[in-house]
Amino acid sequence: MPLSTLADFLPAVQPWQLALICAGVTAAYVIFGMAGFGTALVAGPVLAHFIPVATIVPLLALLDFFAAATNIARDRHAADSAELGRLVPFLAAGSLAGAALLLWGRPDALQWALGAFATGYALHALSGHKPRSALPPRAALPFGFIGGIFSALFGSGGFLYAIYLAGRLDDKDRIRVTQSTLIGLSTLTRAVLFLLAGVYAQAPMLVLAAALVPAMLLGTAIGRRITLRLSREQFLRVVHGVVLCSGVLLLWRQWAGA
C-alpha cells in the first residue's frame, strides 16, 4: 500500500520496491520510445502501489518532459514543422480551456466520451479498414484543441495527436518525433503549472524523479531501437494498440469510480 507522503516513502523504501518501480517505469518508457505517449498506462498502476496517487501525475509530467526532450535532441530533424505549426496554437488554446474546466467545471464526466471515442477509433483502426483519404489540414483544429483540453485535465490527450499525425504523415519517424515534440510542449505546460503550485518544491519528489531518470532513459532508448526496425504498418498497429489501452483504461477508471 502507498504511504501517505513521499517523505514517508523514501526513507522506508525496500530494494525490491525500488526494483519494481524502476521496472514499471522502464516498461512505460519503452512504450513512450515507440509511440511517443502512453507512459501513464504502464507506470501509473505500478507507482500507485507504492507512492501517493497525487504524486504520480506531476512525477510523470516531469519524466515525460525530459524523455520528450531527449527524443527531440536526438531526432529533431525528423519533426514535421508544418504539422507542429498547425497543431500547437490549438493545443495551447485547448490547454487553457482544460485548465479552466479543471478549476470551475466538472471534468470527470468527459472521460466517458473520451474513453469511448479512443476505444472505438482504435478498434476500427486495428480492424484493417483502410481510410479513403488522409485527414485534411483543418483536422488540426479539433484534434489539437480537444487534445489540449484532455492533456490539461487528465494528462491523457496524447493519443489524439497520434491519431491526427497517423492520418497525415507517411513516415513513422516523422510521426514519432513530431508526437514527442507535442508531448514535450504539453508536459512542459503542466510541469510549469505544478512548479507554480509548489509541487516541485518538495525535495522527495525531485529525489524520486532523479532516481527514475536512468530507467526512463533506458526504456526510451529500447523503444526507439524497436521502432527503427518496424515498418510503418507495424508502427501504426503499436500506436493504435496504445490508443485502445488508453480508451479502455479511461472507461475502467470511470466505471470503477462510479
Rank of each mutant, 00 (worst) to 15 (best):
Y121P: 06
Y121S: 06
Y121T: 05
Y121I: 11
L123S: 09
H124Y: 15
A125C: 01
H129R: 11
H129L: 14
P131A: 05
A134S: 11
A134H: 10
L135G: 06
L135P: 09
R138D: 02
R138V: 14
A139D: 04
A139M: 15
A140C: 14
A140K: 04
P142N: 06
F143Y: 13
F143Q: 02
F145I: 03
I146A: 11
I149M: 13
S151N: 09
S151W: 00
A152M: 12
L153K: 01
G155I: 08
S156Y: 00
G157M: 02
F159L: 11
F159E: 07
L160V: 07
Y164L: 14
Y164V: 09
Y164N: 00
L165F: 11
G167N: 00
R168Q: 08
R168A: 14
D171N: 15
D173H: 14
I175P: 08
R176F: 12
R176Y: 04
Q179I: 07
S180F: 05
S180W: 00
L182S: 01
I183A: 10
I183F: 05
G184P: 03
G184H: 04
S186D: 07
T187C: 07
L188E: 05
R190E: 02
A191Q: 09
L193R: 10
F194A: 13
G198V: 13
Y200P: 00
Y200I: 03
A201D: 02
M205G: 03
L206Y: 01
L208V: 13
L208M: 12
A209S: 11
A209W: 13
A210K: 02
A211M: 11
A211L: 14
L212I: 08
L212A: 11
A215K: 11
A215D: 04
M216Y: 06
L218E: 06
I222M: 10
I222K: 04
I222C: 15
G223I: 15
G223E: 14
R224M: 12
T227W: 05
L228I: 08
R229E: 12
R232F: 14
E233P: 12
E233F: 13
Q234C: 11
H240T: 05
G241D: 06
G241S: 11
V242N: 09
V243T: 07
